[in-house]
Design a protein around this nucleic acid. Structure first.
Lengths: 398, 398
DNA sequence: GGAAAATGGTTCAATCTTTAAACAAAAAAC
DNA sequence: GTTTTTTGTTTAAAGATTGAACCATTTTCC
């Protein structure tokens, strides 16, 4: 039920979001954006100034005539957020201001198998990083993304096969180590999707229906519909990675057969190259090497036709999987993340053809697909979004 | 941006929805439900009375002491809605009051292949029905559901294979025939999903994430997430019917291979029984008959083990398809509609086992699945919901 | 039978919000 | 130097919820 305060809260959030999206922006400009009059904006902004959420900056100096506007900015400097991206081999760590702009170099360390020791190490590294020149006072929160199924409410990592974590109460461990800090857990792909919709919302036309597909050791999918992350009954929505391509297909890590993941994950691609089970050999010398997906892509670029074929197969299956997702949800935009994006120039056409092969209409086949390269640190940005996005979230109706 | 009027509008909608859900209900009771005081409710209700959306009824006569309450009801009597369910062989027709309660017997007639002639016939039948004793004055609107892909905005039926309609501007034809009546088009399964969420919302705890799977000549899926029907970029979302079970599986009507629809649609089940291509024979006489799914189910009940096996296969594949949907979206509830629900007692266990076979967690495997029997006319109710639901829809935020 | 208690509905003043108009301040244009 | 234009504030009006007070009506208790 809408109380006397509701419309104020709604407008407060709208104002905050608009300032974030259009900063630097004056009160008068904000009034035009909100289609209200300046008096209302004055009141809203004064409240935000009191709360220290917004600060006034320099005056504008455009060549238009009339009184110069005083610009408004989000007050992002007084506090910082910690973002953690846990991955199978290494864990990445970033500290940003309240808007998500990095305050220091990204750090990383080997992911420890034991959750308790992992959290200890994490805590030490965060402490080191803060001592090395972060002068912001308040910690806004800590966002941590994990590749696997988890419950953000209870903070339990239910199943993260690539980490070997099962029913680990990560939140309790983190709470013990980071006292008084707000902690946000989420599945990696879901957080990536959140970060993307969050970026887009800032950057102009709102994209409210999008899908983020993360291809790595496993396959994760985050879905945003109507601007909201789809979580499902037990935060287990988005498990498109185990969509069957063929119910009698190759076995998957989840115990089933023919999952999309069993066709397109990095291990699947590598297995397709080496031939199942047989280890890779260094060309020329015949030496046995541990083959990584980066290696495989390098070989493909160097002219190894078998490596290229393996990538093309992965591309085709990826496209078929995307086609199913597109048929099912009709998203406005599909993002792809993961190591494989580095070879996108080689495989894009194959992916697109496979999408066209199994989509039901020409419009669906034309759904835009964009890669998010590793250089943009999508997972870390997802972790940041977990911390910063709630402040801007629209208030809910009953 | 929230204006001075927004909270009033929000509360107006909440009040309307609560009256609909709890009627008959007094002002005082409404105030308790809305967690506000009676004075506010008085004002809201008086506005609704003025607009003739609500009417006062008899006084309550419970044994509690104190002044007797005057009950409020939605004013459903002054207007009616027309619901049309277009299906491959026959079209069904219902006239209801503004709340969806039928005002006359359900009519039906053979669906004509030519859209223009179909609309003419429809118009005549509606006219006949109205003349046979509907005294309500105003037509609230006409809701029509079609099994196929269509665009509600433009009113074009893009592709309805079982009807043989392609790129038919059904809305234009209907507008010409039903002058001045608001017309709502939607895909059958999507409308069914809408009707279900709409019913549930009335009946207590809100179910905001559900899926309706319609198994008939084709397979249609309607998805509701966060209380909103998922439409996708071109209203083509929900095409889970063409999810692959096996990308090298049997051919589907859509031109692809191995779609879920190719495994579980009624024609697929029948083909599995008769053996591909060979016509069915009357047991005993050997006479060739056109076999319907109802026939097949009757034979299965009568002890025809091959018919039973065919149904069991369909059940298993249905379960596998549902498992994928459940993995992907994590809905709170799955509804099944279509002729096959008549054999649910025979196949339920097989469906459940197959769901368990491919869901990723025990919680997902335990997702409730309910059938909606043909006697409840889910499609017609969906068509009604298209007309009546918008009046209760929550106002949108920017 | 009559007073008290409890419940439903209305009325009225208080409060919080948006809104429209007036007004002051600052900078460019003439 | 005056006018014009734009920004930001102030002030009064209007629309909404909120809380208390006030009838109306029915049951319960004495």
């Amino acid at each position: 039920m809408a109380t006397r305060r509701t419309s104020r809260e709604i407008n407060r959030q709208i104002a905050l979001s608009l300032i974030r999206a259009h900063q630097p922006v004056s009160r008068a400009e904000l009034a035009r954006l909100m289609e209200t009059n300046r008096s209302n904006v004055t009141l809203l902004v004064n409240k935000l100034l009191e709360e220290n959420l917004v600060r006034e900056g320099a005056q504008g100096s455009e060549k238009i005539r009339g009184r110069k506007p005083t610009f408004l900015y989000l007050n992002s400097e007084k506090s910082y957020a910690v973002a953690v991206d846990v991955r199978a081999s290494r864990t990445f760590l970033m500290i940003t201001d309240a808007l998500g702009a990095p305050l220091a170099e990204i750090d990383n360390f080997a992911t420890e198998a034991d959750p308790a020791r992992f959290v200890k190490t994490l805590s030490r590294r965060v402490g080191d990083m803060l001592r090395r020149g972060i002068e912001a006072a308040d910690c806004e929160g800590l966002g941590i993304v994990v590749p696997g199924m988890l419950d953000p409410a209870s903070g339990v990592v239910i199943n993260a096969p690539t980490l070997g974590w099962h029913d680990v109460n990560l939140l309790a461990l983190l709470r013990a180590e980071f006292d008084g800090v707000e902690i946000h857990l989420e599945n990696s792909a879901k957080a990536c999707a959140l970060a993307q919709v969050w970026m887009k919302r800032g950057g102009g036309a709102a994209v409210n229906d999008l899908v983020f597909v993360s291809v790595s050791d496993g396959v994760g999918v985050g879905i945003v519909i109507g601007g909201e992350l789809v979580r499902g009954r037990h935060n287990s929505a988005g498990e498109f990675g185990h969509l069957p391509l063929s119910i009698d297909g190759p076995p998957c890590s989840c115990g089933l057969n023919g999952c999309l993941e069993a066709y397109i994950s990095n291990p699947a691609t590598i297995a397709r190259y080496t031939g199942s089970g047989s280890p890779a050999r260094q060309p020329g010398s015949g030496e046995i090497v541990e083959l990584s997906i980066e290696n495989l892509m390098a070989r493909a670029r160097a002219g190894d036709s078998r490596a290229l074929t393996a990538l093309f197969s992965t591309a085709r299956y990826l496209g078929l999987g995307l086609a199913s997702i597109i048929n099912a949800l009709g998203p406005s935009l599909v993002y792809i993340g993961g190591e494989i994006t580095e070879a996108w120039d080689l495989i894009e056409l194959h992916v697109r053809n496979a999408i066209g092969e199994r989509t039901l209409t020409a419009e669906l086949a034309a759904t835009p697909v964009q890669i998010v390269p590793a250089s943009e640190n999508p997972r870390l940005r997802g972790a940041v979004a977990l911390v910063t996005a709630p402040a801007f979230a629209a208030p809910k109706l009953a």
